[in-house]
Amino acid sequence: MEKLVERKEELKAAVKEFILREFLPGEAAENLTDDVQLISGGILDSIATLKLVMYFEERYGITLEAHEVDREHLDTVHDIVELLAAKQ
């Protein structure tokens, strides 16, 4: 259990780092909280979403299904971390 919590914290840091670097350059890290809406909030458009998916698929050797690449599964850092954690 503890391991999983630790793992999720690692994933969260990686996801935030990637989003800030690629899509929110200059934004203060503390503003990107776990529940900021990414897709419905205009931060990730369709191409950005694909880039994010490709990056984490390669980094962790996992595959996301087409139906998972949408607002329902990827709209917040929290959602993304949960999905990535479930794939590992």
Binding site: E27, N31, G41, I43
Partner: peptide, 17 residues
């Protein structure tokens, strides 16, 4: 405004493209 705030505002007021 933070980038996140202004993007969210845009998403509510403009088509995504």
């Amino acid at each position: 405004l933070s980038l996140i705030e202004i993007k969210r505002f845009c998403a509510e007021n403009l088509p995504l493209y």
